[in-house]
Design a protein around this nucleic acid. Sequence first.
DNA 1: GCCAACGTTGGC
DNA 2: GCCAACGTTGGC
Length: 165
Amino acid sequence: MASKPSFWLMKSEPDAFSIDDLERVGREPWDGVRNYRARNFMRDEMKVGDGVLFYHSNAKPPGVIGLARVSRESFPDHTALDPDGKYHDPKHSEEEPRWFMVEVEFVEKFQSIVSLDQLKSDEGLDGMLVAMKGQRLSIQPVERSHFTRVIKLGKGATKIGTFKR
DNA sequence: GCCAACGTTGGC
DNA sequence: GCCAACGTTGGC
């Protein structure tokens, strides 16, 4: 029996990497995360096939813009090795990696963004982390019911079954 | 181990 | 551009 998938929300600034960028490249390693809680989710909990709400932050408006899926599990974030890169961390090495990432693949772009305003006001989304005050974490777990509700609000054609594994 | 200072995130 | 809410750093 396959284990049940989990659900996540991942934030990205569209100026840096948007849902359109993900659609174009198909798959993308989620590099550059330098927050321990977010790292732990990627390193310890995110599995191939898990559903991902792709969130545009620092956008007008901010909100969930589409769907992705975890396509590869935890592996070291090599951008931490590059001394000239902005994600460099001298405490990270090949022998003792400190930072990890997953790879995500494009599933679909919503017909319309599910804005943060909608996320906050929808009764079906009570308690969703991203809509709560002060919640800045760039990778967050999402409850199944919230995940399916956001898909409905986005009028996505994707069925929940897409995320079985 | 505490906590002030500093840096970052991200909505507004 | 402002600033609230965190997270990290480093002195002690």
